[in-house]
Amino acid sequence: MHPGKTYPEIPEEKKKQLRHAVHLEVWTLVFLASVVVVMYLVMGSSQAMKSAWVEDLLSLLPASMFLLTAWYERKAPNDRFSFGYHRVGSLGFFLAACALLVMGAYLLYESAISLIRAEHPTIGTIEMFGERIWLGWLMMAALVYSCIPPVILGRLKKKPSQDISDKILHTDADMNAADWQTGVAGILGIAGISIGWGWADAAAAGIISFSVLKDGFTNVRIALSELLDGAPRELASDEIHPAAKAIRAELQKRHPGSEVRIR
């Protein structure tokens, strides 16, 4: 991090919390990357696996954006960017949110098509330790693994996100903490295939794509209110933060006759 000359230093306490958050996000990237690799290796022709894999891949974005922001946003302003790079995080977050939205819509379309065509996914076997093992079991194991690191990391990130009051980190923590639902939906899909219910796979894929779409919508809304200089919001919702309201009311009282706006 390169604190700019013209920015006031952040307090030591906050610096420590920010460093902690950065560490957690680096670990998030490491673990999620391992999940993405494991899932890719066993993906096969299951639509649910594919959707879950894409969701895991996309969940790398908010963590990357947080790190990019932490590194970039306190760069000193210069002649070309005279207000510095504060918005870089919001911009990156907005792009990541758009990616979620587009992929969510695409995955929903794909799962709807395979549901309508009533396609039965064909899943073969693999020879391991001298035994023929159905790849579906490996897929389930990969899905179980994909549930664990994000949930733990999501919980660990909750408190730091409140400490440094960071929207991106908070949303990322939320998405991670809810990631187990994708894994369970995927497992149900493969379990369905294993007992001959081909539709279960497409249905699970549909549920997963809905969760991607939902994340996309929430994130786009948050990113837009930051990019458009909206009033400071509460961490977990789109409501205006009570502190922002209080500051505005106080300033209004101290400077009667003037207009107070807050962003």
């Binding site: 039965h120 073969g124 295939i193 081909g198």
Partner: peptide
């Protein structure tokens, strides 16, 4: 397609 038992 999808005859996973027979495939096994």
């Amino acid at each position: 397609k999808g005859e996973n038992g027979f495939l096994m």
